[in-house]
Design a protein around this nucleic acid. Structure first.
Lengths: 140, 140
DNA sequence: AAAGTAGTTTAGAATTGATCTAATCTACTT
DNA sequence: AAGTAGATTAGATCAATTCTAAACTACTTT
């Protein structure tokens, strides 16, 4: 188990990102990065933190998510109008989106055959190439 | 030119979608579908309509966009958190998104090599497979 | 053509996710 | 222990969208 006292890894993560290790950031970092890949919204993370008795405001959750994203610890994924998901997997990969449930799942990069991607227009650079497969519960 | 008096095509479109041809829907239909493919937000379409002297409220623009989407005349594209784009191209294709400008461009289906797309999980059907290439103005 | 009705439009209020602000607090330095 | 830059926070604000309930209009029936 990842005990609530084991802050060594979270501390190291924040340190190497150049972020001051505050109580809130340590707690959020542990929630996000300890226990496999996650796709989570700010609101969801806020609820989770509070359930664990971590005193953290929604504004701070937003701040932390953006800082983690800027420092490359997270990736923002947009699949749903009016809701941002944050993905703890920052490697190149794709997504399966369960429309009905609002749930995201990773698709490893090589689970899809992708070739002949158009070049970036002149004066532009490609920031990301992302495949999204939207699925819905089958009727019946 | 697509004169402001020529409502025959717009009328036919609405009729075959089973939508009552009101003044507002006719005007919006003309703006959307006459003059090439478009990627437009509700606010943008509202401004456009007003500039042309069409009396239509923002609520009605939203209503119409959703009805047009439900009846397959439009496709909603989500690339930007907190803003929906509506695409008049409903064929299978992909998108280039100019992050800096908030502008979308179509990528024809066969401009990208896509193979070995994972099957939909059991109990689900694939609603859409979509590739989004995000580009940004190159630094320098 | 008048009346009835179901569907449509609308202004404005409400909701939602996200951001901002300015005051308070805290981790680190000295 | 004190100082300071950076962090957190409650609450205000914002922007996109949706809701509500009243007024309106296209179509049907008479």
């Amino acid at each position: 188990m990842t005990g609530s006292r084991n802050f060594a890894a979270a501390l190291a993560r924040l340190k190497s990102a150049g972020l001051r290790p505050t109580k809130q950031r340590l707690a959020l970092s542990k929630l996000l990065f300890e226990g496999g890949n996650r796709h989570i919204t700010a609101e969801q993370l806020h609820v989770e933190a509070r359930h664990q008795g971590v005193g953290v405001s929604l504004a701070t959750v937003y701040n932390a998510l953006h800082q983690f994203t800027e420092t490359g610890m997270l990736r923002e994924v947009v699949v749903d109008a009016g809701r941002s998901y944050f993905d703890t997997n920052v490697d190149e990969h794709h997504h399966l989106f369960y429309v009905d449930e609002g749930r995201l799942e990773d698709l490893p990069r090589d689970s899809v055959g992708l070739s002949d991607i158009p070049a970036a227009p002149i004066g532009c650079r490609v920031e990301r190439v992302e495949l999204i497969i939207r699925v819905r519960r089958a009727a019946g």
